[in-house]
Design a protein around this nucleic acid. Sequence first.
DNA 1: AAAGCACTTGCAACACGGTTGCATTTTAAT
DNA 2: ATTAAAATGCAACCGTGTTGCAAGTGCTTT
Lengths: 144, 144
Amino acid sequence: MVANNKDISSFLKTHGLAGTIIRKQVLSHLWGDGVALTQKEIEEKLPPETDRVTLYRTLRLFTEKGIVHKIVLNGETQKFKIAGRFRKSDHAHFYCTKCHKLLCMPQLDVDLSDLPEGFQFSSARLVVEGICDTCSQKNQTQTQ
Amino acid sequence: MVANNKDISSFLKTHGLAGTIIRKQVLSHLWGDGVALTQKEIEEKLPPETDRVTLYRTLRLFTEKGIVHKIVLNGETQKFKIAGRFRKSDHAHFYCTKCHKLLCMPQLDVDLSDLPEGFQFSSARLVVEGICDTCSQKNQTQTQ
DNA sequence: AAAGCACTTGCAACACGGTTGCATTTTAAT
DNA sequence: ATTAAAATGCAACCGTGTTGCAAGTGCTTT
């Protein structure tokens, strides 16, 4: 639980969603900059009696509403992340393979001038992997 | 069947793989520039009695050997495509939403100079969607 | 061309996540 | 507190990933 209950409740209300227990729990775990979790990872953080269908529906709802983004890493794992101030999931992301944070990087946006003649752009998805600034500064062994 | 049997057989041999019927069939359907298919799409093109496990293992083998690339579109659909001369699946791809071709676009590669101070690059995946040059020229109604 | 071996396939079976329908419970508005 | 609307929990189904194993096939050697 990173953010307090008030914050999350009003956040849900802002987006026209009822403030149910599971939704608050899910949001509280996704709260914080760079936090990105798999559905499984979220499931493991919730009380064990939580129904997997409800979690599935919650995440689907959040994704539809644009509250969270689904991002695919290395063509395999799908992570969920609070959308923050970026409405569209179009912008670039940076995934740190050390601390497993997923950061928005709109400054990395694709240079469309390199698009060959005749090609029309519609959308782009870019995920860059590497080591983030925090992790490369601390050269000490660092877990999580 | 786009390529002839000889081509495909020698292609398999080159990569140290036995030239079995299914492998040839799968390759023949993936042959050609820009062709990218879902596992389901491939399955539908094969004889109906084909075992799904065998197809699964064939595609896994091809992917491991680097013969085909797996590319994820819009964070959902996973397509297979012959790797061609690009060994790493790192380079950018362009997906045409009209003709559903998936083209390699190494010229679109990410501009890493925009990476903020302290960030270390390791790999990147970029998929651009839009309409390809061929499709935007033919403004007539065009299917597939 | 035939034999033998390693590799491949087909089948059965299980795991697991996505998905739906419906009855029950909870939320939020009155 | 009442009530309607929305969310949840449960059972159940589907499709795909994955494995083990027996049977079949491709390929090399003679």
